[in-house]
Design a protein around this nucleic acid. Sequence first.
DNA 1: GTGAAAGCGCTAACAG
DNA 2: CTGTTAGCGCTTTCAC
Lengths: 351, 351
Amino acid sequence: MSAPTVYDVAERSGVSIATVSRVYRTPDSVRAQTRERVLEAARELGYVPSGNARGLASRTTGVLGLCFPDYADPDAEADAENDSEAEDAAMLYSDQIIRGMERAARRHGYALLIAASLEGGPESLVAKVAGRVDGFAVLAQTVPTGDLDVISRRLPVVMLAGPREIDHLDHIVVANAAGERELARHLIEDHGLRRLAFVGGDPDSPDAEARFRGFRDACRDAGLPVPEAPDLRTGMMTRAEGARAAEALLDRGTERPDAVLFANDQMAVGALRALERRGVRVPEDIAVTGFDGIPLSRIVRPSLTTVRQPIRQLGEQAVELLVQRLADPSRTPVSLELPVSLARRSSCGCG
Amino acid sequence: MSAPTVYDVAERSGVSIATVSRVYRTPDSVRAQTRERVLEAARELGYVPSGNARGLASRTTGVLGLCFPDYADPDAEADAENDSEAEDAAMLYSDQIIRGMERAARRHGYALLIAASLEGGPESLVAKVAGRVDGFAVLAQTVPTGDLDVISRRLPVVMLAGPREIDHLDHIVVANAAGERELARHLIEDHGLRRLAFVGGDPDSPDAEARFRGFRDACRDAGLPVPEAPDLRTGMMTRAEGARAAEALLDRGTERPDAVLFANDQMAVGALRALERRGVRVPEDIAVTGFDGIPLSRIVRPSLTTVRQPIRQLGEQAVELLVQRLADPSRTPVSLELPVSLARRSSCGCG
DNA sequence: GTGAAAGCGCTAACAG
DNA sequence: CTGTTAGCGCTTTCAC
C-alpha cells in the first residue's frame, strides 16, 4: 500500500490522469462536476500530489531558499536559562531575515526552505537547498565561494550583507559605513564629544569592519585623529564581551573617552550594565552607542542610541530580487544598499 | 541551454550515469580518481543535482516542514518604527519554533520548509508543503482539519500547542494549566495575596484558555472564589492591549486587586508601563505576572515574574517525533506535554 | 473540456 | 568498483 498517485485517483473517478492533474493546477479548466468527482476520489484515497514529481515535470519548485551560518551548535542542548548570548544575537539577525523572506515569499506564492550550514561539498545542506528551490539567498560567509560559483550558474542566487564575492550575483548590503559615520558625526557635532572609542568585532566580519570605516570617515571629516584600528575588538560581539570591553576601557591607563561606539547593540547593552555596576553614568559621564536597532535597544535604560538596520527588509528585498531574476534571467546583476537610520535616544544624551 | 544532468556529466567524464549518481550519494563507493573526474566535469558544466528527480526516484525529500499561522498580513509594508506589536508577539513565538525545528532538523540531516497560511484547499501552501517534505509540524489552528485529515494519512504530521484534533497524530503541548496554577498558588500562598485578577485573550486561543483554567484551579485549591471568566479579555494579547487592560482594571469601580495575572508576557509588559505612568508601584501596590518567558520579561523593570515556556524545545521535540515516526510509521501516536517552570522575579515581590 | 503519450532527472536493483 | 535497465508521479504537448 504505497501512496496513491494520479493514476489511482483517475481510475477511481473515471477520468484520465491529465484531468486529475488539471484539477490541481487549473481547476477552472475542468467542468465543475468532473472536478468534484476527482476531488472526492482524492479525499477518499488520501491523495497528496507529489511535489517532487510536479517539480520534475514542470521544472519549477515554487520554493525559495535561504542559507545562513550555523552560529549555534545544534548539539548544544541549551536549556532556557543557559542560552548563550551568541545564540541570542544570532537569532535576532537570521530570524528577522527568515521572517522577511517568508513574508515576501508568501506574497509571491512561494514557500521558504531554510538551512544553516558552514560546510560545502557535494553532500552539504547547501547542495540540498540548491537542488530543491527556484532560487535562494545566502548570508555572507555561509557557503564556500567555489560551491556558490557552480550553483549560481544554474539558478538565481542573491548574496546578503557582505561582499558580493561573485560578479554575476545580485547582492544586498546595508549602509554600514554611512550609518556609523552619521552616528559619529552626531556625537561629535551635535554633542561636542571629541574623545571617541570604537569597539569592533571579528576582523572577518564585513559588517563590523564597514562600521569601523564609517567611524574613521567621521573622525577624518571632523579633523580628529583617525585611528588605524578599533580601540578594542571582541570575538563574538556578545553582551558579555561588550561588558568586558567597557571595563577594559575604564581600566585602561589612558583618559576615559567621552563616548564608546560599539559595533553592535548586543555589546552596547552589555556595556550599559557594566558601566552601571561601576557607577559610571550614561550619558552624563560617557555616551554609549550601538548598531542594529534590535528591539532590546529601545527597552534598556538608558535607551540605546543606535543605527537601525532594516534587517527584515533585507529578507524581503532578497525575495524581490529573486522573483525579478526568475522573471528575467538576463537582467543585469544589481547591488542594492539599503539605507539605515539613526535612532537618537538616551544613551548619547538625546533621550 | 538547459541545466546539465547526470547524462551530461556522465558523458563528459566518460562514466555511466550510475557512477555520477554514486559520487553524490556515496562518494566512498567510487574510486577516488573516478570521483575526481566526475566532480571536475560537474564543476565545468555547472551541474546541480535535481532535488526533485532525486526525491521522485528515492521517495524521500530530506526536508521537514512547518506550517504556522500568518498573523501578519504580508502586504502590510511595515517599516521599522511602524511594526505592530501583534507582529512582535507572533514573531517571538513562531520564530522560536522555527529556530528549534531548524536546529533539530539539521542535527538529523534535514532542511526545513516553512510556510504560513490559514487557507486550505488544493492550491494552498499547506498542500505545497505536504507534497515536498517527509513530514511536517503544524501549529494549532493553522490548517483546516479536513485537509490535515487527508494529508496525515500519507505522511507524518505532528500537531503543536493546541488540541490534537485528529486522533492518529502525534501531538505536543506545553503545560499551560499546570503552569498558571503553580504561578497563582505562589502568589496566594507565598505572598499571601487574595484578590487576584486574570486578564485573558481571545476565547479561541487554546493556550490562553488553558491558562485561565489553571488559574481557576488554583483559586479552587485555595478556597478562593472561582471566577467564571477572565476579569478581562483582549483580542491580540499585545503590549498595547495589556496597558489598556491595566488601566481598565484601575478605573474599575471595584477595589483594586492585589495581583493581575496576564495570559502572556506581552500584555504584562504593557501593563507594567501603564502602571508606572499611573504611579502605581509594582509589586508594592500590585503584583503583575505574565506567561511565556520571553527575553523581554527579564529585562523590563521590575523584572517580570512569569512561567517559562520551552518554545524552542517544542520545535525540537516536533522534529524528534517526526524522525521517530519516519523510522517507525506504526508507532502508537504520542501526546507530549512539555513542562514549564516558574520564573519568580521582581514583579511579584520575589526579586 | 478531456485523453494519450512522451518525457522531466534521478535512484535502485541487478549484473558483471 | 562500475554499467544497465526500469521506473518514481507528474506536466505537457497534441489530438479529439
